[in-house]
Structure formats: structure tokens, C-alpha cells
């Protein structure tokens, strides 16, 4: 939303329902089908994964992705941003799913305290918080993994919260710029500016201040309350996408037991990212459990 608003040309906040660039999310079917000519509905998840690098390479070389992006001034930029949720994984053929350096020049990787993710994920997936915590520690977890129906997006592997973060931090194919959501919330303009500098985009302080104002969480939530949000998981069910957006909301949302589970599951990565643990650490943890996968 910050980047979309940075390019808002008419002095108005970007309409949250008009972020229509078909390339905007890497797991979208349209660019894949447009460029490959193949109906992704008759391919298995693994077969799709084997072809995804070819699509990202073609897009990075400037291939069109299908419907109408030429008429969208917001995408005629020197730097093209693509959102994605996928972990940094290899295809069954052993090449980077996202095509490595042939697919992108760099990655801005945004992490959030897993304790704040739990409630948000539960709501997004319409599950209990306990299920969300289990999902965040499941090495086989994925979005859109279903096989008996066609989902809007391709399968996105999310092999535990820690595994997802480490997959990105440990890869050496593309330079990475790590942003903690908590730091972004505390100093949005400063963090946005450094992320843009990483991407090789110069923006004036004025443009950044305006983007921060337009993408303010309360404003996004207000837009959703007034007009709904097309990216909501189940648009016909009464729910909202923009929830709280607060840092530390977990303190009044999670039980002590839930907090302890998350901290036990993800201790090493939370420490690596500077997320302070609250529960007393049990002496010598059963670390074998974490390496047995």
C-alpha cells in the first residue's frame, strides 16, 4: 500500500480495490497462463512449480503478463514491485522457484513478530488461534494447497514461520533488505525511504510523507468499511481484512500458553530478529525435535 500510494498520480489515496496490476502477486495464475499458454488447472502443484521460474524470467525481461497493464500508468515504472508470500524454495527440479537473480534484482523482506501474526492468520484462514499457531509450526504448511478445486492462486509453501524467514535470510541468490514490521510501524517514512533506496528508487521526502499518510492503517480500514476490500479471502462473508495492525496486540489477545508455544516453536529465529521472549526458557530444550524434520 505504501508503494502503491507512492505512485498515486492524482493527489488522492489509492483506492484499495484498484490495485489491479495482474503481475502484482507472484502466485497469480493469469501471467502464467498468458505466457505459457497452458491451463494451470490441468497441472499438478509440482508441475506448476517447475514452470514458475520460466515465467518470472520472462516477466523480468519485460514480457507482458496479459490483460491491460499497458494502460495502467502505475506499473510503468523503472522498478517493478511484485508481492509474494512464498518461502524461498527450490522446485522439484532443484532450481529456485522464483528464478533467483534471473527473476528479480532484490527482495524487500518484511517480517513480523510471530505472536502478532497468530491472531491475524487465524482470522485470515478462518481458524482458531491454536490452529494458526500449529500452522505456523507445520513444515508442510502452504496457502492454496488444495487439489479438488482450483484456487485463485498457486500453492505457496510456508514451511513454518521460522523456516520461511530463514529460507529468505539464508539464500544467496538475490540481495535482501530486511524490514521488521515493528520498525516500519515506528518510523514508516524512514524505513520506506531506506527500502526504496535499496530498490534503487529515489523519492522526495514530500512524496514519502504523502504515501505514509495515504497508506495509514486507519485510512485503509476506513476504505474497507466504506467499500469493502476485494482481496478479502471470502468477500461474501462479513469480515474485515484490515484488523488492528498494531504492534504488540498479542499481549491482550493470546493466552500465556499460546505465547509460550510460539516462543518455544520459534525461539532461535525470534532471537535472531530481536523479538524479546517473555516466557522463562526451559533449560536445555529438546532441540532434536527441531532438526528431525
Amino acid at each position: 500500500m505504501l508503494i502503491a500510494n507512492l505512485f498515486a498520480g492524482d493527489g488522492q489515496p489509492v483506492n484499495i480495490n484498484e490495485l489491479r496490476d495482474p503481475r502484482a502477486i507472484a502466485s497469480a495464475r493469469e501471467p502464467f497462463e498468458y505466457l505459457s499458454l497452458i491451463d494451470s488447472g490441468v497441472l499438478t502443484h509440482d508441475e506448476i512449480d517447475c514452470l514458475r521460474p520460466r515465467i518470472y524470467e520472462a516477466l523480468a525481461c519485460g514480457a507482458e503478463s496479459g490483460h491491460g497493464e499497458d494502460s495502467d500508468s502505475a506499473v510503468r515504472r523503472s522498478v517493478h514491485f511484485v508481492k509474494l508470500h512464498d518461502a524461498y524454495t527450490l522446485t522439484p527440479e532443484g532450481e529456485p522457484l522464483l528464478a533467483g537473480a534471473r527473476g528479480a534484482e532484490g527482495a524487500i523482506f518484511i517480517v513480523r513478530d510471530p505472536r502478532d501474526i497468530a491472531q491475524s492468520l487465524a482470522k485470515h484462514r478462518a481458524t482458531t488461534v491454536d490452529d494458526a499457531i500449529a500452522f505456523m509450526n507445520d513444515p508442510q504448511a502452504a496457502f492454496s494447497w488444495q487439489t479438488g478445486e482450483q484456487r485463485a492462486q498457486f500453492r505457496q509453501k510456508l514451511p513454518t514461520w521460522s523456516g520461511h524467514v530463514s529460507s529468505w535470510l539464508n539464500q544467496r541468490d538475490v540481495p535482501i533488505h530486511l524490514v521488521r514490521y515493528e520498525d516500519l510501524a515506528a518510523d514508516t517514512a524512514g524505513r520506506l525511504k531506506s527500502a526504496l533506496a535499496f530498490a534503487g528508487l529515489a523519492a522526495t521526502d514530500e512524496a514519502i510523507t504523502r504515501a505514509v499518510r495515504f497508506a495509514d492503517f486507519a485510512r485503509l480500514r476506513q476504505q474497507e468499511q466504506e467499500n469493502g476490500f476485494r482481496e478479502t479471502e471470502h468477500p461474501w462473508r462479513p469480515q474485515t481484512f484490515f484488523r488492528r495492525g498494531e504492534v504488540g496486540g498479542w499481549r491482550d489477545e493470546l493466552t500465556a500458553e499460546q505465547v509460550a508455544r510460539i516462543e518455544t516453536d520459534h525461539e532461535a529465529m525470534m532471537r535472531r530478529l530481536g523479538y524479546k521472549l517473555t516466557t522463562p526458557r526451559a533449560p536445555p530444550r529438546d532441540r532434536a525435535r527441531g532438526t528431525a524434520e
Binding site: 505466457l35 505459457s36 499458454l37 497452458i38 497441472l43 508441475e47 517447475c50 514452470l51 520460466r54 515465467i55 524470467e57 520472462a58 514480457a63 527440479e93
Partner: peptide, 19 residues
């Protein structure tokens, strides 16, 4: 040349890897 195909004159080659 495209990601899964090549075209030349009246010939069109499509490859679906491993299929």
C-alpha cells in the same frame, strides 16, 4: 521463443516439462 514454446513460420513447438 516463449517460456514453454517456440514458433517459426508455420511450426509451433510446445513443451510441457516432464509431460
Amino acid at each position: 521463443v516463449g517460456p514453454t514454446w517456440q514458433m517459426s513460420g508455420d511450426q509451433f513447438l510446445l513443451r510441457i516439462p516432464n509431460v
